[in-house]
Nucleic acid binder design. Structure first.
Lengths: 259, 259
DNA sequence: CGGTATTTTGAGTATCGTCAAGGCCAGTGG
DNA sequence: CCACTGGCCTTGACGATACTCAAAATACCG
């Protein structure tokens, strides 16, 4: 069920590099690192099955995981993406409602459930991080709902791109800066994107073409998109809030630092 | 911004009747009741505006509130419903991302933010209740996502009805038993339902008619629906999990107790 | 360079949104 | 008690949009 983990020296897991965890007390961070196993998963591998009670708490270090639900008729729906810094594996013992699969090759920090719970009891700071993580996911889920409520594919795509910019701006290799333009590397393929946005791959493709024809984006490659008209994209998405949450300057500074 | 509250004797707020809170230590419960104001809101009234940092933590006692987002073009999307026992008003100080409005006449328990935070620090049990509430909401948001991902209106409606049965089974006047049949009283009107399911009221109406013609349901009144074919409804919804989560026996026992 | 998977395009059909009109119900006032 | 009014729900006709199926083009990988 779970990929046989590739163990490494715990010192190598680099937890302090994760922004959310950086501010924890040194002692707690040390114990966290001690309880951490590094697991490498290949794209397509399942980390947790639906209905499992996960035997560890995970924290994504690299790559992208998808939370998905397999319907009775075999179709799959993605309910969220997990990227660097996101935690998963129900902290408060309960069976998972979704599978967790690697969307790309990924590196995950795994904390044994028991050890993590102990740490949680000892550190209100860690507990706070966990709660903020859950609240964060709740907000994201609601963002997806708003996006999904949009009937036009182009609007959903525009919303998706904006969310990528806001949520994933700080994640390497997702948003980059090129000649003063913003490039987005979409971390999942068309089929997954279709599942995420409640559409078919063909419609996704047509939606991208429509956005390109409208001058909003430039399709450099299927998974590499250059944003030409940010405001236009925000207008297409229809939602003022998501758009306003995109701090363009902030975005650019991040991208530039990386360039 | 916030409705002028109707104050009552704190002893009348009846918090112990809320299942989630019933197991709290008596002392905490007492302090909670002491910090509680009872607020009555009429259908359509706004409890919190988007962007507000709510000045109290709320707990629904009666009725139904909707969490909604108003888009740039004036359209509204509902991202969730709050019913008896649900808590709202961000506990961890942060501006709200959506408005909270009364969908029906409602009664809300309001706890001053400061007092609630103090209690939270004193009672890990209360904190646990709050966390479980958030996790619960996350699950619900994901359920909505799955439902919204469905392209056919009838499927979304079927999913909605099933969620109503699972999530709201214990809420008075939502699910009832009549002559061995299950009746669902939909707590919101067509327009709100349309906003919730990402459709137009006309499409909702047509969807209900289609379900009725297929023999799944009987439309007793616009907001009162008799379920004739539970399994068929589950098949329409397309999602195995939501369907399986409906424990029909459990549902019936609840309904019968009330009858 | 070839083979495979992914993505894109095209044509036809089903579904939903839009606009407009009609029906139902409740509350109001004669 | 009944007619009237307003809000909500439903129905109908038409246009827009996305889905289905099939095929071609492109990207990816060895």
């Amino acid at each position: 069920m779970t990929k046989e983990p590739t163990r490494r020296a715990s010192g190598a897991c680099g937890l302090p590099a994760i922004p959310q965890l950086a501010d924890l007390p040194p002692g707690i961070l040390q114990d966290l690192e001690a309880a951490c196993r590094v697991i490498r998963v290949e794209a397509g591998q399942t980390v947790f099955h639906a209905g499992d009670t996960p035997e560890f708490v995970g924290c994504v270090r690299e790559g992208c995981l998808r939370m998905q639900k397999t319907l009775a008729d075999g179709r799959q729906h993605i309910v969220g993406l997990l990227v660097e810094g996101d935690m998963f594996g129900r902290v408060h013992e309960a069976p998972l409602h979704f599978e967790i699969e690697a969307a790309t090759d990924a590196v995950v920090c795994a904390f044994r459930h028991r050890a993590f719970e102990d740490l949680l009891l000892r550190s209100p700071e860690l507990e706070r991080v966990v709660i903020l993580n859950i609240i964060n996911e709740l907000d994201r889920a609601r963002d997806w709902m708003i996006i999904l409520s949009n009937q036009k594919i182009t609007a959903r795509l525009a919303g998706f791109l904006l969310v990528l910019c806001t949520r994933f701006a700080e994640i390497d290799h997702v948003v980059a800066m090129e000649n003063g333009q913003i490039d987005i590397r979409i971390p999942i393929n068309r089929a997954d994107l279709a599942h995420l946005l409640g559409a078919r791959p063909e419609s996704i493709s047509r939606g991208f073409q429509a956005l390109a024809k409208a001058g909003r984006i430039d399709l450099l490659r299927p998974n590499l998109i250059r944003v030409l008209d940010f405001d236009g994209l925000a207008a297409d998405a229809g939602d003022g809030e998501i758009a306003s949450r995109v701090n363009l300057q902030h975005l650019i500074s991040h991208a530039r630092r990386r360039a």
